[in-house]
Amino acid sequence: MIGKRCLVTGATSGIGAVTAEELARLGAEVILVGRDPKKCEEMRNRLEQRTGNDAVHSMVADLSSQAEVRRLAETVRERFDRLDVLVNNAGALFLERRESVDGIEMTFALNHLAYFLLTNLLLDRLKAAAPSRIVVVASDAHRGASINFDDLQSQRKFKGLRTYSQSKLANVLFARELARRLEGTGVTINALHPGVVNSSFFSSGEGPAWWVMRRVAGLIAISSEQGAKTSVYLASSPEVEEVSGAYFVKQRNVKPASAAQNDEVASRLWRVSEEMTGLVTSS
């Protein structure tokens, strides 16, 4: 990865932090993105010390805010003329309904629309570095889910896990649709399931439900190091240089759920995402 420039969102903890460290260890120039300025700077220093790589940058953005996503993209565009790898990793699970600063249900805003908006805003930098790669951290939680266009923001009925699963299905559909649109550009995009990872993902909430989830995660979850392997693989391995629109589990190309292979739904989700972000994209 020497000579490659990689941007990793959600890079201050969990699999995002491990992904960023492993890419830095492989010699890549790494741009860390996180919400907390202190944690971003601490992670940047940590990576430099642990990898001996001084080409590590940190940028601060709350990706649930579309204005913040746009500001981040503009900063990246001002500082860098190309981007070899974009790892869309930031995400969260909310057991109670809440809305972003844009008035959008938080799970959908952070887990899907942030991926959609940031990726599209940085596409020209990815095309400039082709062959380049986009990595989408999704989840096997997408299996059994569907995109409820009639209640996309769970206003009528909210269940945290179901809403999360819908957002992860949206991730896989986004990767599928964008892969189609990027054919012939030299830019690939693939989605992945990292596994059930025992990371800060499960430490963010309070209450009985979160306590149960933490206990279960402690029993069955894998480490962040194990969970980051497929992200690093998709970002760096020559084996997948020309693979696009696929879904990976444990570094293997597997079939996602049938709902994630529906091109009509993927196209409709794209159009809705354009409307919700005010973004005009090429077909």
Rank of each mutant, 00 (worst) to 15 (best):
Q261M: 10
K250R: 15
R125G: 00
S154L: 02
V18K: 11
L126P: 06
D102W: 00
E21C: 09
N253E: 11
E105P: 01
L32A: 01
R98E: 11
S283K: 06
L23K: 10
G227L: 00
F116R: 10
A257E: 06
G34S: 10
V272G: 05
S165N: 14
A179F: 00
E78I: 08
M43R: 15
R143T: 06
E42Q: 12
L182N: 07
T163Q: 11
P256V: 02
S203T: 08
L47M: 01
H112I: 08
R82Y: 12
R133Y: 01
M59Q: 13
V137D: 06
R176N: 07
T9G: 03
G144S: 09
S132M: 14
A257K: 04
L93G: 03
G227K: 03
T9F: 08
I189F: 03
Q251T: 09
C40V: 15
F116D: 07
A55V: 07
A17D: 10
E274T: 09
E241D: 02
L123A: 04
S146V: 09
I104V: 09
G27R: 06
N190G: 06
F202P: 01
Q261R: 13
R98D: 08
E99I: 03
D54T: 14
S223H: 02
D124N: 10
V76L: 08
L63N: 11
L118Y: 02
L113Q: 00
R271N: 12
A266C: 10
T12C: 05
F108G: 05
P238F: 12
A179P: 00
T188S: 14
C40D: 08
Y115P: 08
L7F: 14
H57K: 08
E42C: 06
E29D: 09
A217D: 10
T281F: 12
V254L: 15
R271C: 09
G52T: 08
S231E: 14
M43G: 04
T277G: 11
T9R: 00
G34L: 11
I15V: 15
E21W: 06
N190E: 06
A266D: 01
E105C: 03
V265K: 04
L7G: 12
L122G: 03
V187R: 07
T9Q: 08
R156E: 13
G245D: 06
A191W: 02
A259C: 01
G10K: 01
C6D: 01
R133V: 00
F80S: 04
V60N: 07
F116H: 04
R98N: 07
T12H: 13
I222S: 05
W270F: 07
V196A: 12
L23S: 13
S231Y: 12
V135Y: 01
S236D: 08
R44E: 14
S165E: 06
G186W: 04
S64P: 11
L86T: 10
N148L: 15
R125Q: 13
E41T: 11
S282E: 14
V254A: 09
S139F: 07
V87P: 11
